Computed example of a mutant assay.
Amino acid sequence: MSHDELLALPTTVSVETAARAIRLGRTRAYEPARRGQFPCKVIRIGTSYRVVTADLRRILGIEPN
């Protein structure tokens, strides 16, 4: 995922999108998300998991201009 793509992401993204950004596979991303051990803040909404984009950018060292 490119720098520009990361800056264009909405406020929250799916676990799959976050996993792609940090180069994790889908299954390897959902396991820690379910256990509360994902490297970014994860919000559970019903049966869905959403990753906070600002936190994702922070761990990747990407700041908006």
Rank of each mutant, 00 (worst) to 15 (best):
R28A: 15
F38I: 08
G25V: 05
R34I: 11
R20E: 12
E5M: 02
R57E: 07
L9A: 05
A54E: 10
V13K: 07
L56E: 05
S48F: 13
G61V: 03
I62N: 05
R28Q: 14
H3N: 10
D4T: 10
N65W: 13
K41I: 15
R35H: 08
Y49T: 10
Y49W: 07
R44T: 04
M1S: 15
V52W: 03
G25Y: 12
L24I: 09
L7I: 14
H3L: 06
T12I: 12
Y49S: 01
R50W: 11
V15N: 02
P32M: 03
I62Q: 04
V42N: 07
D55T: 06
C40R: 08
R28W: 08
G46K: 01
T53A: 04
R23N: 14
R34V: 12
A54R: 13
P39S: 04
I43Y: 11
A8W: 09
T11E: 15
L6C: 08
V15W: 00
T27H: 13
Q37C: 14
A8E: 12
E16H: 08
S48L: 13
L56I: 14
L60P: 03
R50I: 04
C40W: 04
S14E: 12
R28I: 00
C40L: 04
T47P: 04
R58M: 11
V52Y: 05
I59N: 07
Y30R: 07
S2W: 10
F38K: 01
L9M: 05
S2T: 14
G25S: 15
A21T: 01
R58T: 13
G36S: 11
G36M: 08
I43Q: 13
F38S: 01
L7C: 11
P10I: 03
R23V: 12
P64N: 09
P64Y: 00
Y30T: 02
R35S: 13
A33S: 15
E31C: 06
R26M: 08
R35N: 12
V15D: 03
L56W: 06
T47G: 09
I59E: 02
I59L: 11
R20H: 07
P10C: 00
P32I: 02
P10L: 09
T53K: 05
A18H: 00
A33N: 07
Y30E: 00
Y49R: 06
C40G: 03
P32Y: 04
T12N: 05
G46F: 04
S2K: 14
R57D: 05
Y49L: 13
L9I: 02
R57H: 11
R44E: 09
Y30D: 07
A21E: 00
V52H: 02
A18D: 01
R58G: 09
E63Q: 15
Y49F: 15
V13M: 05
A54T: 08
G61W: 07
L6I: 10
S2F: 13
R57N: 06
G61I: 00
A29E: 08
A19C: 02
T47R: 14
E5K: 10
A54H: 02
E31V: 07
R34N: 14
V52L: 11
T53L: 01
D4R: 12
T12M: 14
R44P: 02
I22Q: 03
P32C: 05
V52D: 12
F38P: 03
T17N: 04
E16G: 09
P64Q: 13
G46Y: 06
R20D: 12
S48Q: 15
T27W: 05
R50C: 05
R58F: 15
